[in-house]
C-alpha cells in the first residue's frame, strides 16, 4: 500500500485558516490502513481544526467525509460531489494521487494536501511501516530472491552491500534500518546459492520508472469504444 504521514498541524491549519467552508476528506483505503487519513483521522483533525478556529476567533465551518478511495471516479458519489462543491477548500487526507484527482474532477475547488505521501510499504508491526518498493517500473525481485535492493538499500546498490554495512544494519541508519545487501546475502546463503551473487548485475534500466517521465499504462483490451 501507499504509506503516508499526516502533515504537522500548524502547516495544515495555515493551509485552511483563510477559508470559511472546509471539507476534511478522508480516504478509506491506503490512508486508512496506514492510519494517516481514514475516518478516525478525519474526525480527530476536524475537532482540532474547530478548536484552533475558536481559539483564533475564526469563522470556519468544518465538514467531514471519508470515501472509499480518492483515486477512483466511482467513489465520488452524489453526496461527496455535493459536499466538495459546497466547500471553499478541500483538505484531502488522501495520498498525493487523491489530491490531484480531486483537482481534476472538480477544477473549481481548491485542494490542499493533509498528508505527506512517503512510500510503498508494509505494516510490519503495530505502528510500524517500512518501505518495500520504489515503483521502479521494471521489477528485479526475481534476481534478488524477493528482497528489493532498489527500495531497501539507501544507495540502491545492485551489487551490494557497500563497505558501510555493520551488524546487519545500514550505515545511513544503524539503529533502525537493515542493510538490504546483507539481507540479500543471507537469503542467498540460506538458499544455498551464494555463488550466484558473483554475477555482476548490469546498470539498471531506469526509464521504465519515473526517470522515463510520467508513467502511463494504456490497456486497450479494457477500453470502451466511445
Amino acid at each position: 500500500m501507499i504509506v503516508s504521514e499526516q502533515k504537522p498541524f500548524g502547516q495544515i491549519f495555515d493551509f485552511v485558516r483563510d477559508y470559511n467552508n472546509i471539507l476534511v476528506l478522508g480516504c478509506g483505503t491506503c490512508m486508512t490502513v496506514c492510519m494517516a487519513g481514514g475516518e478516525n483521522e478525519v474526525g480527530v483533525l476536524s475537532r482540532q481544526l474547530k478548536l484552533a478556529a475558536r481559539h483564533n476567533n475564526l469563522n470556519m465551518n468544518i465538514d467531514e467525509l471519508t470515501i472509499t478511495r480518492q483515486c477512483d471516479r466511482e467513489f465520488f458519489d452524489e453526496n461527496a460531489t455535493e459536499k466538495i462543491n459546497r466547500s471553499d477548500v478541500v483538505l484531502s487526507l488522501g495520498c498525493g494521487v487523491g489530491v490531484q484527482y480531486i483537482v481534476e474532477l472538480f477544477p473549481e475547488v481548491i485542494v490542499r494536501p493533509g498528508v505527506n505521501t512517503r512510500f510503498y510499504g508494509a505494516n510490519i508491526s503495530q505502528g510500524l511501516w517500512l518501505e518495500r518498493c520504489a515503483g521502479c517500473g521494471e521489477c528485479v525481485l526475481d534476481q534478488y530472491e524477493g528482497i528489493c535492493p532498489i527500495a531497501r538499500c539507501a544507495k540502491s546498490l545492485m551489487n551490494g552491500p557497500c563497505g558501510g554495512s555493520a551488524d546487519g544494519m545500514c550505515e545511513v541508519d544503524t539503529e533502525n534500518t537493515e542493510c538490504a545487501g546483507q539481507l540479500i546475502y543471507e537469503r542467498f546463503k540460506n538458499l544455498n546459492k551464494l555463488d550466484e551473487l558473483l554475477e555482476i548485475k548490469p546498470p539498471k534500466n531506469w526509464s521504465a520508472g519515473r526517470d522515463g517521465g510520467p508513467g502511463r499504462i494504456a490497456r486497450e483490451d479494457m477500453m470502451f469504444d466511445e
Binding site: P161, G163, S165, C179, E186, L198
Partner: peptide
C-alpha cells in the same frame, strides 16, 4: 576499494572477486 572489515565478513572476498 575493498573493505575486509565490513559485514558480511565471508562475503568480502567474494566481493573482491566480483
Amino acid at each position: 576499494a575493498a573493505n575486509p572489515f565490513a559485514e558480511p565478513l565471508d562475503y568480502r572476498v567474494m566481493r573482491l572477486e566480483k
